[in-house]
């Protein structure tokens, strides 16, 4: 696995142009948005709803890329590909990896805030 930054805020800072509350707000919104999507993945996987898994993974990938949560984006991307293959075991492994990344990212988010 490529060693990616958990949280690369370079682009967010460029956009914020020194607006710290804005950065905090974006990261809060990110966290709020990812949590339920991540939670829904297990249910979808249990029901073999690979379309829902893929959709959820895609959302996480897009949102993570935008804020600079590169590890999250990379793992969400792998899950999206796994959902396409409709392999339940592979998908389950990718979901675990994603949760693992999320925990680490949340620690980073806490630090950033």
């Amino acid at each position: 696995m490529v060693n990616l930054d958990l949280l690369n805020l370079e682009r967010l800072r460029e956009i914020a142009d020194g607006d710290q509350p804005f950065i905090a707000n974006v990261l809060r919104e990110y966290r709020t948005a990812i949590t339920p999507v991540l939670a829904s993945l297990s249910g979808a996987l249990e029901g073999s709803d690979f379309q829902a898994v893929r959709h959820g993974a895609h959302n996480i990938k897009g949102s993570s890329r935008t804020v600079g949560a590169e590890a999250m984006a990379e793992r969400a991307c792998r899950l999206e590909e796994a959902a396409l293959s409709q392999d339940p075991q592979l998908c389950a492994r990718r979901v675990d990896e994603l949760r693992d990344a999320w925990e680490k990212t949340c620690s980073e988010l806490d630090s950033a805030a």
Partner: peptide, 15 residues
């Protein structure tokens, strides 16, 4: 639909 993206884009465009 992604709130973080919406915020960042809005900020970028308004700037």
């Amino acid at each position: 639909d992604d709130p973080a993206s919406l915020l960042m884009l809005t900020k970028a465009l308004q700037r």
